[in-house]
Design a protein around this nucleic acid. Structure first.
Lengths: 166, 166
DNA sequence: CTTCAATATCTCAGTACTGTAACTCTCAAC
DNA sequence: GTTGAGAGTTACAGTACTGAGATATTGAAG
């Protein structure tokens, strides 16, 4: 989480009343508001799925299986961005709730599918629309045009940051 | 985490080749890219502070104390957005490393300050510039103008989402 | 066939927190 | 002075993961 507004290095010419901010200043401010806004929206999303006894990661698995159909566990992992151990843990929990089941992969016996059970399918069909409305409310401080603009910028940012080696 | 692109409800007139997306579609896409881009940048920030044996939350405390001076624990909590228990835990850890110390508040004996020790001050002075460069690199996929634009949008989003009751 | 690097999943100890409840202290009202 | 609501901090149990290593399987090369 976030650096707050930073101390200004006193370098540079004081050419005018305001000083141009450095590349680092600009970047840090972006990072702070990115983290804060993500957290603020996440709290709404979490509260919504928590009403059904789910975490955001669990819901993300249900949702991706609902919209894409059965997926290999490794594919699920890449879609929802958790660790390999995390997928095992989450699918175990969802299986324990009767919402997801593992299926064998006939072509590769190392691999296994995760798939929604009928109960899981029914649950997602019921709660997904509510969840979508809840998210829409959480981001309603931005107009639709602003949301589209923010989406374009964040998509570009996310792709480039993910591509940079750590 | 993130909903993927959603199944389209087949309602509405098919007036043209492309259909206008619903408010929920737009919101969900924003939420997905917000979560993903935050995670992607956070991985860089985490890796940077991990080189010094710190978590992001620990670093955030060091940084805020460095730039604002001693702060009441409750103020720290509000700045870095963790739970009250989290502040106690984090300050305990930083105190164990000799970077932060608690000080009594003479005016209110319920409250206590957190303040950097000389060692903590020295550490932040050393690693903060590196950290800033590391963040600048992580967000360098966006031009400076785009970063400023994204910052303005996310600030607005964060404030409105935080103000909405959960 | 054998070997072996690569891939897919699982196991499990460890971590960084959160949330609830308890404790201490303050301050305003009576 | 006493009472009580409430603020500030802490203790502790619980949670949702991560990361490293173990296990199983594949497929390509020799």
């Amino acid at each position: 989480m976030g650096a707050s507004a930073t101390a200004r290095p006193t370098e540079g010419r004081s050419t005018g009343r305001t000083r141009a901010s450095t590349a680092e200043d600009t970047a840090l401010k972006l990072w702070v508001v990115l983290a804060r806004s993500q957290l603020a929206v996440a709290r709404h999303a979490e509260a919504d799925v928590a009403r059904h006894g789910l975490t955001l990661a669990e819901f993300a698995i249900l949702e991706v299986l609902y919209h894409r159909g059965p997926l290999l566990l490794g594919e699920v992992q890449r879609k929802i961005l958790v660790s390999s151990g995390g997928v095992t843990y989450l699918v175990d929990r969802l299986a324990g709730k009767g919402l997801v089941e593992r299926r064998e992969c006939t072509h590769d016996r190392r691999a296994r599918y995760a798939a929604l059970t009928p109960a899981g399918e029914k649950l997602v069909a019921r709660i997904f629309p509510e969840h979508a409305r809840s998210i829409a409310r959480a981001v309603s401080g931005l107009s639709k045009a602003e949301q589209l603009q923010a989406t374009a910028l964040l998509r570009k940012l996310g792709i480039s940051a993910a591509d940079l080696p750590i």
